[in-house]
Design a protein around this nucleic acid. Structure first.
Length: 920
RNA sequence: GCCGGGAUGGCGGAAUUGGUAGACGCACGGGACUCAAAAUCCCGCGGUGGCAACAUCGUGCCGGUUCGAUUCCGGCUCCCGGCACCA
């Protein structure tokens, strides 16, 4: 009868043992090196999803692995508990966000515990609790004192029907999600954090993060966006109605492509620009257009992809280098809040300007010649004291270029080929890069601007017109203005019994919250009702875990013992915002003397998304109806290829839409609880690690889960078999090569080589091949164990060989359990205990491969002829390169190719790998 | 639109970073066991040609570097993540 795999009992027992022994409580043991392993804390949405399971399994594998490697490990868990979904749930179910959030936390904590994660729950925190968010408020006040936090206007999405601010997520195709009204941009006051004050450090310190993925560092660097360009002014004589020059007669612009300045054919200004306002005063059509520009969301993606529109103001400015008049247009793609609120437009050398010019029939003037078309010439020229080889433009239309090479439009650097004005002599024929520098010099000389470093990064607006967040600790007094809440009145507690109804912030209706007295003058005053962006909460929680949750300090001395985080794990979707804000607040806290590290996360792993099949059908009304994968049966052809799908209930076909991220709306989510119930946590964890490398997307597969389960069943059965054998045989105490037969030596080599590879893969965080290594060990064990050497009475050698076989099998199984234990800890715990290897596998030492077991005196080399595989040969490992070069051409598989009088031209030897013979 | 990433059999993926393409698993096909089914076990499994040995093509597409390219370089296509108020 087949041995059952009682995963429910196994998992319960193991979890019981860990709880009773407080196995996961982080110790203050300073004799071991520390390892702080942190996974991004979850938003308590109600139920765990597979993304969580993946994230926390990765963290747990690293936690358990490092414990066994002898580290003092901290793995905490908490809740990113403020945010919009709680308010949406409140609107839907009429439950206060606080209650909804608390219930969700309770349930999700149970789910996490059922997965057997080695979490130190004594450090659990939730950002919606006053003892946590008090320190958000405290830090905000300190930043206010230092001028890092300040107030200014911000642009928000405004729903004109609901009279409320909308999150970007609540804007769908430019309309409010509940009202369907066209969204408008509106300016309202709000608090900002001056992240731009730290831009240089945030950029430079990326170099201090060798343990971060390159792609994340690149994205952050591009987000901060340091670029050099020229800021300069077009001059004009445009006056307001009172007769004063607007902006002192200067239209300022910034460009990273100042080398194209000779090709400017118009300027575009934002709808709110003073010149646009002036022009609209006696131009109703323009006024209407400016009004229209205010429609739409503030999202950058929307701004960048929307139809570019513009209108001529009728005004003209003067080109500062050529003296020619340049028309001024209003463009809906120019933003008042970015740069100068105005841009120079060069249709010939900028894609966006080109499209705009084509649309409105504006002139296109090519001034940059492609690099391939121009020949270099003497003499050298000097720019800013440095000598350069210039590239002179010759022949033809002033430059040597064929008609094919020349086009109306090219955006690459080249040579200045056309221009005019008093400065043209200094620029003519110059390479774009030098020209940008020289044009900066010219503007500096003219007093009209000059070279300027520009950053893309903007300050961080943290005011949210929402209820379920951390209150901003400010009091508005009619006499004293905006007054910070004194420290001894912190925390400003959020009332927890509000139920939002979708129409604005419910705090506005809470007189008990709003009404207060001014800390300065004592007169009646009003409390600020805006709350903080939830990114503030999540930008420092890692430091709070690492402290002892002192009621008197944001972080305490223990923080420095654990920080920085050794390994941070979370979704790639956080690559920019969350990680950048965390880095920023770390530096702010450092400068306040609260912490001593420059960077909070030493190593970062960004895990990929979890995907599943999407099935749908068009409804009669033209909509799309989604079906859960369990409601659908797949249709295969003879080769196993999926050719279609039909719904199990009615047998009718459904559309198979391929793979997509698990989501409620697509109905393709898989409930971790269901998997744990039916297959066990170990199976869920094993599949998660096995199916895909951590950084890549993971495709869910029911049969893949069953395959993982099947493997664990085999492990369990093998363990039971081993236990049974134990009862009839004394264990050999040590390995003796003299006693072992060749098969055993070969088997042992396979196991140790697999272990070596698994250890290497663990160091690379490539857990899928570690999981597969455990499978390979079991395969080898099963193949090896099936045919033991026959023991015949009186044959001592056979008896000894059998003892070595048993030793090798036990050794291999111990290695298997140890390597499996971080991934599927419960089954490893149970078998380790039952086989008498120790009390808890977590306290065992991590296995290392033995060189002596892997040693081999022969090696099989691949033979290639002209780079193509033609055969192989097994030779003594000691053979040197010269011997191999002599031996290889004599092999039959090579001789074949030398038959037609061809000769050996070259031999390439890759030690212990291959020999390539070049024949010609 | 901009920034970043990805693409390898029917499918998920592997290939120790320029050296045997397809490890391991899934699916599928064949067989054993069974009255039968499930479970389990064994065998096969990139395409084409061939009884076979073997030959040949093959890592999204086009081109390049190299004795040798999934890996490096140039140019594309499609998919995914982010774009500052989802978290």
């Amino acid at each position: 009868m087949q041995q059952q795999y009682p995963f429910r009992e196994i998992e319960q027992q193991a979890q019981q043992h860990w709880e009773t022994n407080k196995t996961f409580a982080a110790a203050e043991d300073s004799s071991k090196p520390k390892y702080y392993c942190l996974s991004m804390f979850p938003y308590p949405s109600g139920r765990l999803h597979m993304g969580h399971v993946r994230n926390y399994t990765i963290g747990d594998v690293l936690t358990r692995y490092h414990r066994m490697k002898g580290f003092n490990v901290l793995q905490p868990m908490g809740w990113d508990a403020f945010g919009l979904p709680a308010e949406n749930a409140a609107i839907q179910n009429n439950v206060p966000p606080a209650k909804w959030t608390d219930d969700n936390i309770a349930h999700m904590k149970e789910q996490l515990q059922s997965l057997g994660f080695a979490i130190d729950w004594s450090r659990e925190l939730a950002t919606c609790k006053p003892d946590y968010y008090k320190w958000n408020q405290w830090l905000f006040l300190r930043m206010l004192e230092k001028g890092i936090a300040y107030k200014k206007t911000q642009t928000v999405n405004w729903d004109p029907v609901d009279q409320t601010v909308l999150a970007n997520e609540q804007v769908i195709d430019g309309r409010g999600w509940r009202t369907g009204a066209v969204v408008e941009k509106r300016e309202i006051p709000g608090y900002y954090l001056g992240i731009t004050q730290y831009k240089e450090q945030l950029l430079a310190d990326l170099n201090k993060l060798p343990g971060w993925p390159e792609r994340v560092k690149l994205m952050q660097a591009n987000w901060i966006g340091k670029s050099t360009g020229v800021r300069f002014a077009f001059t004009h004589d445009i006056r307001d109605t009172a007769g004063n020059l607007i902006d002192d007669g200067k239209l300022w612009v910034f460009s990273t492509r100042a080398d194209t300045i000779m090709g400017v054919t118009f300027c575009a200004v934002a709808a709110e620009h003073p010149l646009a306002t002036r022009a609209a005063q006696n131009n109703p059509a323009l006024a209407a257009f400016i009004e229209k520009c205010k429609q739409g969301s503030v999202m950058e993606a929307d701004m960048a992809t929307m139809e570019k529109e513009g209108m001529d103001t009728g005004l003209q400015v003067t080109h500062p280098l050529t003296g020619e008049p340049v028309p001024v247009w209003v463009g809906n793609y120019v933003l008042m809040s970015y740069g100068e609120g105005a841009v120079m437009a060069v249709p010939a050398h900028d894609e966006r300007d080109f499209g705009f010019a084509k649309k409105y029939g504006l002139p296109i003037k090519s001034v940059i010649a492609p690099s391939s078309s121009v020949v270099p010439a003497e003499p050298k020229i000097t720019i800013a004291g440095k000598e350069y080889t210039p590239w002179h433009v010759v022949e033809g239309r002033q430059w040597k270029v064929s008609e094919e090479e020349w086009s109306d439009y090219n955006t690459s650097d080249g040579f200045l080929a056309d221009g005019s004005g008093p400065y043209w002599d200094r620029l003519k024929g110059m390479w774009s890069g030098f020209a940008r520098e020289e044009i900066g010099n010219i503007f500096a000389e003219l007093g009209l601007g000059g070279t300027k470093v520009q950053w893309r990064l903007r300050d961080w607006g943290i005011s949210r017109q929402r209820y379920w967040g951390c209150p901003i600790p400010i009091i508005h007094c009619d006499t004293c203005g905006d007054v910070p809440v004194p420290d001894d009145q912190l925390p400003v507690k959020l009332p927890e019994d509000c139920v939002p109804d979708g129409s604005g912030n419910p705090l506005h209706k809470r007189a008990d919250f709003i009404n207060c007295t001014c800390p300065k003058c004592g007169k009646p005053a009003r409390r600020e009702t805006d709350t903080m962006d939830t990114f503030v909460d999540s930008s420092w929680y890692y430091a709070r875990y690492a402290s002892k949750f002192s009621p008197d300090a944001m972080v305490d001395a223990e923080t420095s013992q654990w920080m920085p985080v050794d390994q941070y794990i979370g979704g790639i979707e956080h690559a920019i915002l969350h990680l950048l804000y965390s880095r920023f607040l770390s530096k702010v806290m450092r400068d306040m003397g609260l912490v001593s590290y420059d960077e909070p996360f030493a190593n970062l792993l960004t895990q990929g998304m979890v995907l599943n099949h999407i099935f749908s059908r068009r409804t009669d009304k033209g909509g799309i109806e989604y079906f859960a994968p369990e409601e659908v049966g797949l249709i295969h052809d003879a080769s196993g290829k999926i050719t279609g799908a039909r719904m199990l209930a009615d047998g009718q076909p459904v559309d198979f839409q391929g793979m997509g991220t698990m989501s409620k709306s697509k109905r393709n989510g898989v409930d971790p609880e269901y998997i744990i119930e039916n297959y066990g946590a170990d199976t869920a964890r094993f599949f998660m690690m096995f199916a895909s490398p951590p950084e890549q997307t993971l495709e869910w597969s029911d049969s893949g889960v069953e395959g993982s389960h099947r493997f664990l069943k085999r492990v369990w059965a093998f363990g039971q078999e081993l236990i049974k054998l134990r009862n009839n045989m004394d264990l050999p105490l040590s390995w003796s090569r003299d006693e072992a037969d060749d098969e055993t030596v070969a088997f042992r080599r396979v196991v140790h080589v697999l272990l070596k590879q698994a250890n290497f893969d663990l160091s690379k965080l490539q857990f899928n091949t570690v999981a597969s290594a455990t499978m390979k060990v079991l395969n080898a064990l099963e193949a090896f164990g099936a045919h033991p050497v026959m023991y015949e009475q009186g044959q001592l050698n056979a008896l000894l060989a059998n003892r070595q076989r048993t030793f090798a099998r036990e050794e291999a199984f111990r290695i298997l359990l140890a390597v499996l234990s971080p991934i599927s800890p419960h089954i490893a715990y149970a078998l380790w205990r039952d086989l008498g290897y120790g009390d808890d596998i977590l306290t065992a030492e991590w296995p290392e491969p033995l060189e002596e077991a892997m040693a081999q005196d022969e090696v099989t080399l691949v033979i290639q002829v002209n780079g193509k595989l033609r055969g192989n040969m097994t030779v003594a490992r000691s053979l040197d390169k010269e011997a191999l070069e002599k031996l290889a051409p004599t092999q039959p598989c090579v001789q074949k190719y030398l038959a037609d009088g061809a000769s050996v031209r070259k031999i390439i030897v890759v030690p212990n790998k291959l020999i390539n013979i070049v024949v010609g």
